[in-house]
């Protein structure tokens, strides 16, 4: 059993914080995603694997947002629901995809090498412009108390 430090790795390869071998469920799924500036993007709600016929599947994207979380919550029923939804309106509630080459490290949190994908900020932006920004004092940081 590995008892060394530094995430779920068993020996580092060439990459900065990327393990050679890892368990997706343990080391990737449900982890916090932070963008290059340390801003919270969301959680890794799901992981997508894809393959060419006859080849091994490869990690093709991290999925985040309700489009990925929704189906997971309801299990098998949710998957059927999503297949249906996908057929009805192909551009529907699609999850945000983050390609794995934008990942700097996976554990303990998933850090990206870029700013957050804009689609992850839709609700945040809407609430900001329609509510929070209109309350006096919304633009003041609290860290003067530090």
């Amino acid at each position: 059993m590995n008892t060394g430090r530094g995430g779920d790795d068993t020996g580092h390869g060439a990459g900065p914080g990327l393990p050679r071998v890892m368990r997706l469920g343990f080391a990737v799924l449900d982890r916090q995603i932070l963008d290059v500036d340390g801003v919270a993007v969301g959680k890794v709600d799901d992981v997508e694997l894809s393959w060419e016929e006859g080849r091994r599947p490869v990690l093709s994207a991290l999925l985040t947002d309700t489009g990925a979380l929704g189906p997971r919550l309801s299990g098998r029923l949710g998957r059927t629901w999503r297949t249906l939804l996908g057929r009805l309106r192909p551009s529907g509630d699609l999850p945000v995809r983050i390609p794995p080459d934008q990942v700097h490290t996976f554990t303990p949190a998933t850090r990206l090498t870029r700013p957050a994908p804009p689609q992850t900020r839709v609700v945040e932006d809407w609430l900001r412009t329609h509510l929070i920004e209109r309350i006096p004092g919304g633009g003041h940081a609290d860290s003067d108390g530090q």
Partner: peptide, 19 residues
């Protein structure tokens, strides 16, 4: 229970097996 992946030389991760 879990999916084990392994890093390839080109930096991508490929499926290694299932726990």
């Amino acid at each position: 229970h879990d999916i084990v992946v392994r890093r390839r030389d080109d930096g991508g991760y490929e499926m290694a097996g299932f726990v």
